[in-house]
Design a protein around this nucleic acid. Structure first.
Lengths: 228, 228
DNA sequence: TTATTTTGCGTTGAATTTACACAAAACTAC
DNA sequence: GTAGTTTTGTGTAAATTCAACGCAAAATAA
């Protein structure tokens, strides 16, 4: 008996705008099934491309967005997850920095749009489950991997990081302890610049030192932030 | 252009024999490619079965082993990982308790065998990478999930747990602190029985209380063991 | 110039983690 | 059956880490 299963990739891509909400990149489907329903960007993998390449290609085609961080999330393979053919979808988890938010709607898909995580429309297929899983992954990763920096600009005031954590984790932080802890790691450093002040005292700008982090990590260091 | 990609599952199944080594279940391939090479159990997914069903079916067919714990590991999809067709493999991570070690070689595959993790033969395809990933997963999970109990018999002396941790993590433990910590969680309890003494003082037997663990976990409790 | 917003920073008590050693229970060999 | 060996079982003190907490300084807005 010949196997006839399609292989697709789907991407849950998060973005975070300074002091606003966490958002997810969605597209409106142009074809059946679920025509005109919002869905995760993605599509069938080409015969000779890697899964990661497929994700990046589909993202570019459908949204024009370039990703700053990408990792595999989970594979979904229930026989009936697609009403027509059997499709196994390998889902990916992506983050983009604020300077890559711009959507190029020129291309393939009907429409692409950022949705605040608090206001997600009905989604096609089992994409709601995929999104939920991705949210959980993001939340848990914030605790043990310095992944928040892939949602911030290259240089940022400390309060941005703080707000990122509080809004995504939906928990309050003791600002002083949080800052103390993060600084103690020695993986973020002052740029020397100051923020163009908004309404209040201007803030020092910081940046994440990837090299230092990697060096420390190789040396047994383990990033970890807890909350009460 | 029609997509023609096969979907397979592979399983990395670990077993641990009291005070011995960690072992992995392998099969010797009966067909090309890689005929007569050792490989992870697995195979093509049937049209109408779930991925998990496929894993359990293949395991039964090829090794006769029934699994005590199963979770998805990672999906491997490099275009050339199989020299003939394109095959995307969704790999799974499994654990079996000592009472399920027995291999039923009657079935499908040429041969099945437990290999100590310290003495793994050359493996087919990219199965070496898959195994490495599974080892890493096992190691890291031991720290934050009470998964070691799925490698032990239902009731066990405390020293078994201790040895499990030290051999898998290849680190020394302070017995007193380890025991204190684990007992403080309140998820393992005395059975009342004593071990049939080997060569030394007989030991109390313990068992893992799954229900209690789940209740606590739902309530925000987080299993965590660190090592120095 | 006064009020408001936001940043930046230090200390103390509580809790947790680490380091560390010796006696009791069984078996083994004589 | 005695002496030696192996394995189990347990407590305390010092060091570290975590949690709680408030106020002054720099800017903008009114």
């Amino acid at each position: 008996m010949l196997q006839n299963i399609k292989v697709a990739v789907d991407a849950v891509v998060f973005g975070y705008e300074s002091k606003k909400n966490l958002s997810v990149l969605l597209i409106k489907r142009g074809v059946e099934p679920f025509k005109n329903t919002w869905a995760l960007p993605g599509g069938l993998v080409l015969e000779d491309e890697s899964l990661e390449d497929a994700v990046e290609r589909e993202l570019l085609e459908e949204t024009g967005v370039q990703i700053d961080y990408l990792e595999q999330l989970y594979s979904f393979g229930k026989p009936k997850r697609d009403p027509r053919n059997r499709v196994v979808s390998i889902s990916y988890f992506g983050l983009v920095k604020p300077n890559h938010f711009k959507i190029q709607a020129d291309t393939d898909a009907a429409e692409a749009q950022w949705f605040p995580i608090t206001d997600i429309p009905e989604l096609a297929f089992d994409h709601k489950s995929i999104l939920d899983l991705a949210k959980a992954r993001l939340k848990s990763k914030l605790h043990y991997q310095p992944i928040g920096f892939d949602l911030l600009s290259k240089s940022f005031p400390f309060s941005d990081l703080e707000h990122l954590y509080t809004t995504i984790l939906e928990k309050d932080i003791d600002r002083r302890n949080f800052r103390k802890k993060l600084m103690s790691f020695g993986i973020i450093e002052e740029t020397g610049e100051m923020s163009q002040s908004g309404s209040g005292r201007p803030a020092k700008l910081f940046q994440f030192n990837t090299k230092k982090y990697k060096a420390l990590a190789k040396d047994g260091f383990h990033f970890e932030i807890k909350f009460v």
